[in-house]
Every structure is written in structure tokens, then in C-alpha cells.
Simulated assay, not measured.
Amino acid sequence: MLTVPVRLLGDADVAAVERLLDCEPYAGAQIAERVAAGGLAWWRHEARLFGYGNGKRIDALCWLGANLIPVRAGPAAVAAFADLIAGEVRGCSSIVGPAEAVVDLWDRLRPHWGPARDVRDCQPLLALDRPAAVRPDPDVRLVHAGEVDILYPAAVAMYTEEVGVPPAGAGDTSYRERVADLVRARRAYARVLGGRVIFKAEVAVATRHTAQIQGVWVAPDWRGRGLATAGMAAVVADVLERVAPTVSLYVNDFNEPARRAYARCGFRQVGTFATVLF
């Protein structure tokens, strides 16, 4: 009888998981933040983390919760994770991570979970470990606690434009609470003009290695004026001083204006992500 090299991980595996994630400071950031905050007991996260490897050795990881995230998963690990997960009803809203693993995983899960709403198979993963190469926008700052109502419409607009549908909970309080959490945690940045957000960005993930930026958005009538470049430079400056030693993000390959802005700031490509959206 063959031993299946995939197992559900628990708190006893934290040290081994952290060692593996240290080898993937950018690709593993989303998992690393959650493990640091709550260990590996599934009930703390409403998610499970599976490890691939022989015996106690862990060579690859797969996070299964609101998102499905493979890390350091080669073809054999992807096949093993897919075999384990395929029989479950899909509960995640996306598969996201290193492109080769995500595409392979989706090819295997599609007959069971398909179809996807969108597959973005080439998203450059970028990082920067020094101040941006351009002058920061002095008007970009942390959003104040009393400005959630100002930030919220911009957050909904960004999400809808980026993902193609409004955020789950946009009609009630859950998405607004997510925005408020970012503000309380001092992770939300904006340039506010006349009571309106014209640039925004958030630190979505923070680990001892990196702060991952998401939600970068410029109001449509302000685009083409360099706000994204200078705004990101301001975000980078504060993050490097206050949050983490590097700044990272991933961007759709077809989003040429955003890619140009990040390049002007000095971001370099450190990998390629892919995202499957449901």
C-alpha cells in the first residue's frame, strides 16, 4: 500500500512551515501572515493547510480557505493536492499563487469545479527593497479613522473594475467592515481632494519579509497625470519605514499603465502569479 504524501498540518508543524515560507518570502506571504497570526489549527482560520512531503518533511504547501493558494508546489505536489481537493465542493473564491502551479492545479480541478469566471494566467510578481526612484506624492497619507465613508466608494469602484463584479457584501456591512479594518490597522493610504479619494492603495498582507500591496486605484478622471507613480512612491516610503523591509505586489500583464507606474518606481519582477476567479 502506498503512503499518500499529503497531510493536514497543525500547530506542531509551525516551525517547519515557517522554514519553507522563509524560502518563498513573496509567493508565500499570504499564508505566512495567517500562520504568524493564528498558528495552524484550522478552526482559528476557517481554513486548512496541507503539506506535501515524505514523513515529517514538508516540501510544498496548499492553503484551502476563502482562497486556494499553492506554495512551492511542483507537478507531483500539485497532482497530490488536486487528488485530495477534487472531491470537495468548491468553497474558495479564487485560486492564486505561482503561475505554473495555479494553472496546473486548475487544469486538474476544472472538471470537478468548473467553469471559472476568469483566468488570469500571467500576473508579474514585483518587489522593491528601497525608496522609489521618483518623488513621492506629499498628499498621499494614511486614511484617518473618520474617513471610512470617504474611502469605501473608492474601494468598491476599484474592486468592481479589477474583478469584474462588485465585492461580496457590497450591499451590506461586511465589505465596508473589511475597509474599516484596513483603516484601523493603518494599512489604507489615499490622496483625498475635496472630500473625495482620487488615489488609494492598501497593505493587504504584512510579514517579516514583505508588505504586499493591493487595491491600487486612481479615479478615472485623474488618470494619465502620474498620480499612480507618485502615490505608490509615497506608499513605498511609509511601508519601508514602518511595516516591512520590502514592498511587493502582483499586477495583470495587460495593465500597461500600472506596469509602467511600478517600473518608474523601481519595482523589479521576482516571479509570475496566476489567478483563477470564480
Rank of each mutant, 00 (worst) to 15 (best):
A47C: 04
A29R: 10
A47T: 03
P136V: 11
L125G: 08
R225V: 04
C265S: 00
A201L: 08
I58H: 03
A116N: 04
F267I: 02
G10H: 05
G28T: 03
A86G: 00
G194T: 11
G195P: 14
C62L: 15
V183D: 11
C92L: 02
V218C: 14
R178S: 06
A16E: 03
M232E: 09
Y26W: 14
N255I: 12
D107Q: 11
R44S: 12
D253M: 09
D172M: 01
G215R: 09
G53H: 03
A41E: 12
L227T: 04
T3A: 04
V165I: 12
A47R: 01
P115W: 04
V78M: 12
S93Q: 12
V216C: 09
L64V: 13
A73H: 14
M158C: 05
R48V: 07
R186W: 12
A261P: 07
N67K: 07
R130G: 07
E46R: 06
R110I: 10
A79I: 15
D139N: 06
L151T: 02
R117T: 00
A228M: 15
K56I: 00
H112P: 01
T229W: 11
G195I: 11
V203L: 00
R259P: 05
M232P: 15
I85L: 14
G195K: 10
V218L: 11
C92H: 13
G226D: 09
A127F: 08
G215Q: 11
D118E: 06
V119H: 03
A47E: 00
P138V: 11
A219I: 09
V163K: 02
G38Y: 04
R120M: 06
I213G: 13
E147Y: 14
L182W: 04
L20P: 10
N67T: 10
A66I: 13
A234L: 14
L21P: 09
A145F: 06
C265Q: 07
T210A: 15
W42P: 12
G231P: 14
R34G: 01
T272R: 15
A86T: 03
H112E: 07
L20A: 11
V165A: 09
L277V: 10
A133M: 02
L182S: 10
A41P: 01
P75M: 13
G164V: 05
I69F: 11
G164S: 00
A12N: 06
C92E: 15
V276C: 08
E162A: 10
A157T: 06
A230K: 02
A79T: 15
R259S: 06
V148E: 11
V140N: 03
C23Y: 04
W43V: 07
R19D: 05
P220R: 15
V96S: 03
T3G: 02
G28Q: 07
A16V: 01
T246C: 14
L193R: 15
A86H: 00
P111S: 09
I85C: 03
G53M: 10
T275K: 05
E88F: 03
M158K: 01
V203D: 12
C265M: 00
L182H: 10
G169K: 09
V35E: 05
R19P: 01
A233N: 12
G266K: 13
E241D: 15
F267M: 04
H144W: 09
E33V: 03
D129P: 03
L21N: 03
V71R: 13
R260S: 01
R117L: 07
W43A: 01
